[in-house]
């Protein structure tokens, strides 16, 4: 099942805050690019994390190529609206008149969910083979670095909300098309977790909510930052039996080994729990990176891991 994740046109990457969604989204994009696909990673909610991970290379609303076949964009709701209006109204002058209108600015800024709807609209547009944007090239796969689980589900649900609010008319039609695409076979959802109590709970909850609210199944879980199993239980026991012998440096190193062993063991039991409770959903793992920061090199390492398991 997970093998088809890279064959989707649109993939939402979500998960509890701080688990490494951006890293996994970027690595997934890189993995797709290595398979010869034209991939784009979309940042939403002005997070600019991809750019920061690349040392401030500006990824704005313009589609920017980061590596061969890997593109990035930071979806800005305001720009998405300008684009949408120009397309809908057909006249640049008239759409500018609308955009400059104080009341219109007021209405769009105040309406809850408007930013999310515009973001989803742009994400959908990027995933179309026939792009609305004139002269824009299509992508094989669009990977959305979505907000954390609760908000991530919220943003995915927004088109449906607006569809139901609007009942009839162009907004309804448009929202319905987006909602159908998001819940259709071309869209996939990947939840990122860490092998810890809370992120595992949140992943299990997210999976249930995704099914209940959107009627779609979770395609895969990526368990990020898994500590290596460096020491066996017997080795840990042997270290413990030294009972404080050795120099300060040796004691510190041995304690670090015991700490690593304990953490790795706790993580494995959480990983087992996750696997047990997600039934047939594929669970992939990615190693903990002991590097001071995460950029293109680290994404490459993780992309290789993903390629092996996808």
């Amino acid at each position: 099942m997970s093998s088809s994740l890279l064959d989707k046109r649109l993939v939402f990457v979500t998960g509890k805050g701080g688990v490494g969604r951006t890293t996994v989204a970027a690595a997934l994009g890189l993995a797709a690019a290595r398979r010869g696909k034209r991939a784009i990673v979309c940042e939403v909610a002005q997070q600019e994390r991809v750019s920061r991970a690349l040392g401030g290379v500006g990824v704005g609303f313009e589609e920017t190529e980061l590596a061969p076949g890997l593109w990035a964009i930071s979806v800005d709701p305001q720009r998405a609206m300008e684009e949408y209006l120009r397309d809908r109204i057909g006249s640049r002058r008239l759409s500018e008149l609308v955009l400059e209108n104080r009341l219109f600015q007021y209405l769009t800024a105040a309406t809850p969910g408007m930013r999310e709807l515009l973001t989803m609209g742009k994400v959908w547009e990027l995933a179309q083979l026939e792009r609305r944007t004139p002269e824009a090239a299509p992508y094989d796969i669009v990977i959305v670095d979505a907000p954390a689980t609760g908000h991530g589900l919220g943003i995915m649900r927004t088109p449906r909300t607006f569809r139901d609010v609007a009942r009839v008319g162009p907004i309804r039609r448009q929202a319905d098309i987006i909602h159908s695409f998001v819940t259709g076979p071309k869209t996939g959802v990947l939840c990122v977790a860490r092998p810890e109590e809370m992120p595992v709970n949140e992943t299990l909850q997210f999976r249930r909510a995704l099914e209940a609210d959107m009627g779609i199944a979770l395609d895969a879980v990526a368990v990020n930052a898994l500590y290596p199993e460096r020491f066996s239980a017997a080795e840990a026991a042997r270290i413990e039996s030294l009972d404080g012998r050795g120099s300060v440096a040796a004691r510190t190193a041995l304690e670090a080994a015991l700490g690593e062993h304990a953490r790795a063991r706790t993580q494995r039991s959480q990983l087992r729990r996750l696997r047990r409770e997600t039934d047939d959903v594929p669970v992939l793992t990615l190693p903990f990176l002991f590097t001071p920061s995460v950029g293109l090199t680290e994404w490459g390492r993780l992309a290789a891991e993903l390629e092996r398991s996808l």
Binding site: A166, R167, G169
Partner: peptide
Amino acid sequence: SQALFAVLRRITGVDL
């Protein structure tokens, strides 16, 4: 605003 209203009607439908 009058122009805006006409445009909004076109985009949203009168119902909304």
